[in-house]
Simulated scan of single mutants.
Amino acid sequence: MNDDHVYMTLAEGHEDDTRWAYGTGFEDPLHGVDTTVPEGVDAGALAAVCVALADDALVSAQRLAEWITRAPELEEEVALANTGLDLLGQARLLYTRAGQVDGTGRDEDAYAYLRDAADFRNVRLAELPNGDFAFSVVRLLVLSSWRLAHFQRLAAHPDPVLAAVAAKGVKELTYHRQYAAEWVVRLGDGTEESHRRTRTALERVGPYLGELFTAYDARDEVVGVLRQVTEEAGLPMPVYRPLPGAGRGGEHTEHLAPLLAELQGVARAHPGATW
Rank of each mutant, 00 (worst) to 15 (best):
residue 7 Y to G: 08
residue 9 T to M: 06
residue 10 L to E: 09
residue 13 G to F: 02
residue 13 G to C: 13
residue 14 H to M: 10
residue 19 R to T: 11
residue 21 A to R: 08
residue 26 F to H: 03
residue 26 F to G: 08
residue 27 E to T: 15
residue 30 L to D: 12
residue 30 L to N: 03
residue 31 H to G: 04
residue 32 G to Q: 15
residue 35 T to G: 10
residue 37 V to K: 01
residue 40 G to T: 12
residue 41 V to T: 04
residue 42 D to A: 10
residue 49 V to M: 14
residue 52 A to N: 05
residue 52 A to K: 06
residue 53 L to D: 07
residue 55 D to F: 02
residue 55 D to V: 06
residue 62 Q to W: 00
residue 64 L to T: 02
residue 66 E to G: 07
residue 66 E to S: 12
residue 67 W to C: 06
residue 68 I to N: 09
residue 71 A to F: 08
residue 75 E to T: 09
residue 77 E to T: 08
residue 80 L to C: 09
residue 82 N to Y: 13
residue 83 T to P: 00
residue 85 L to T: 00
residue 88 L to G: 05
residue 91 A to N: 07
residue 93 L to D: 14
residue 95 Y to K: 10
residue 96 T to W: 06
residue 98 A to P: 11
residue 104 T to K: 06
residue 105 G to Y: 10
residue 106 R to G: 09
residue 109 D to H: 09
residue 111 Y to W: 11
residue 112 A to P: 08
residue 113 Y to D: 07
residue 115 R to Q: 15
residue 118 A to M: 00
residue 120 F to C: 13
residue 126 A to N: 12
residue 129 P to M: 12
residue 133 F to H: 13
residue 135 F to R: 12
residue 138 V to M: 14
residue 144 S to V: 15
residue 150 H to Y: 14
residue 151 F to Q: 09
residue 153 R to F: 02
residue 159 D to Y: 02
residue 160 P to K: 02
residue 161 V to S: 00
residue 163 A to H: 06
residue 170 V to R: 02
residue 170 V to K: 05
residue 171 K to A: 11
residue 172 E to P: 05
residue 180 A to Y: 05
residue 180 A to E: 02
residue 181 A to I: 00
residue 181 A to N: 11
residue 183 W to R: 09
residue 184 V to F: 00
residue 188 G to Y: 02
residue 191 T to K: 04
residue 195 H to M: 03
residue 200 T to H: 05
residue 201 A to C: 04
residue 203 E to G: 14
residue 204 R to I: 07
residue 204 R to G: 12
residue 206 G to R: 00
residue 215 A to L: 07
residue 222 V to T: 10
residue 224 G to H: 08
residue 225 V to A: 04
residue 228 Q to M: 05
residue 233 A to Q: 05
residue 234 G to S: 03
residue 235 L to K: 01
residue 236 P to N: 01
residue 238 P to K: 01
residue 240 Y to G: 05
residue 241 R to T: 09
residue 242 P to K: 08
residue 246 A to T: 07
residue 247 G to Q: 11
residue 253 T to D: 14
residue 257 A to K: 14
residue 263 L to R: 15
residue 265 G to E: 13
residue 265 G to F: 08
residue 265 G to C: 01
residue 267 A to P: 14
residue 269 A to D: 15
